[in-house]
């Protein structure tokens, strides 16, 4: 790829930012630990998400992707320090105070589809009670209309009306997931944030859950799918962002990433090669500690292509942060 194409791609990225639903620039999260140690959980994350688009944020557990999600929702613990911007409809999520986040962001602009939906629901209340309460909290539907609104929300998430009066423990994993999705949809939030929505589910259920999330993106919502399940990401994502040691190391269209061309970053290639329907060989070594990152490229110690050049951190250019990408840049 030559310089002209790279510039053209950067221009596309800039254009994307203009009609983006969510625009994240330089998002950095640090945790200060006792003893002066610092955990670099997220470093300089840049990405945009358009309406109707599904962006999958993939990476190994502990790479910082869940911290990124928590940062967007303002749910980080007290010892976290954030910098950068995350704009959604003119509000900077990182600068907003708790009141703004509670009143106008969570549920209204960002709907959260949680990791373990059964734990996300109050065990002593029925699904209907959950839905009606959320309708009351997020919309100004008058009391008589709430029942209908709750039923409509359930229908949008394909939650069967026959199970509305069930308690969370009476639901199967799939139904609990739909109930949680129905709750996330009530505020008609333009952005859905799904944090590992398929962990621990059966393969059939993974596919169904993923397809349902995709349908909500097709309805014009933006979907940020945070997952370590590459198969689920391949199924529904438009673009893929690969995170490694707190940095986004590759941001690529899904068809190219999962298709015959494949990813450009050696780590992303290694991750795909680890899949059981591909080479089924692991990436050698283990990811570094976020509290003791190596100088330069964090992947260099595990990378077959590493050279002296990798002692400096590669910038994300034309969608890949690597000094020796698969298809060399100009």
């Amino acid at each position: 790829m030559n310089a002209r194409v790279a510039r053209a791609l950067d221009a596309v990225t800039a254009e994307r930012a203009e009609d983006a639903l969510l625009s994240v620039r330089g998002l950095t999260v640090r945790f200060r630990l006792r003893g002066g140690r610092t955990v670099a959980a997220v470093t300089d994350a840049d990405f945009d998400l358009a309406p109707g688009e599904c962006l999958a944020l993939v990476g190994e557990s502990g790479c910082g992707k869940s911290v990124l999600a928590s940062a967007l929702l303002g749910l980080l613990p007290a010892n976290a320090e954030t910098s950068g911007t995350a704009l959604i409809g003119g509000t900077d999520l990182l600068a907003a105070d708790e009141k703004t986040l509670a009143r106008s962001v969570r549920g209204r602009r960002i709907g959260l589809v949680p990791q373990s939906p059964a734990a996300h629901l109050t065990p002593v209340r029925t699904v209907r009670a959950h839905l009606e309460e959320t309708v009351r909290a997020l919309t100004d539907t008058p009391r008589p209309g709430r029942r209908k609104a709750a039923e409509d929300a359930a229908e949008r998430a394909a939650f069967p009306a026959t199970h509305l009066d069930s308690y969370p423990h009476e639901l199967s994993g799939g139904l609990a997931q739909r109930a949680a999705t129905a709750l996330a949809l009530i505020g008609d939030a333009p952005l859905l944030l799904a944090d590992e929505p398929t962990t621990g589910l059966d393969r059939d259920l993974v596919e169904r859950t993923a397809d349902e999330l995709r349908r909500h993106a097709d309805d014009g919502r933006g979907l940020l799918l945070i997952t370590h399940d590459l198969t689920a990401a391949a199924r529904i994502a438009d673009r893929v962002a690969v995170m490694y040691a707190g940095r986004i190391v590759e941001l690529a269209p899904a068809h190219r990433f999962f298709g015959t061309t494949g990813p450009d970053h050696p780590y992303a290639r290694g991750l795909l090669d680890a899949l059981p329907d591909r080479a089924f060989t692991p990436v050698p070594g283990m990811p570094p500690e976020l509290s003791a990152l190596p100088e330069g490229c964090a992947f260099a110690p595990r990378c077959p292509r590493a050279t002296d050049l990798c002692a400096t951190v590669p910038a994300l250019r034309a969608g890949v942060a690597c000094h020796h990408p698969e298809r060399p840049r100009a």
Partner: peptide, 10 residues
């Protein structure tokens, strides 16, 4: 309390 012990959610 384990939540305090873990200190971090990564």
């Amino acid at each position: 309390n384990p939540r305090r012990r873990s200190e971090l959610m990564l």
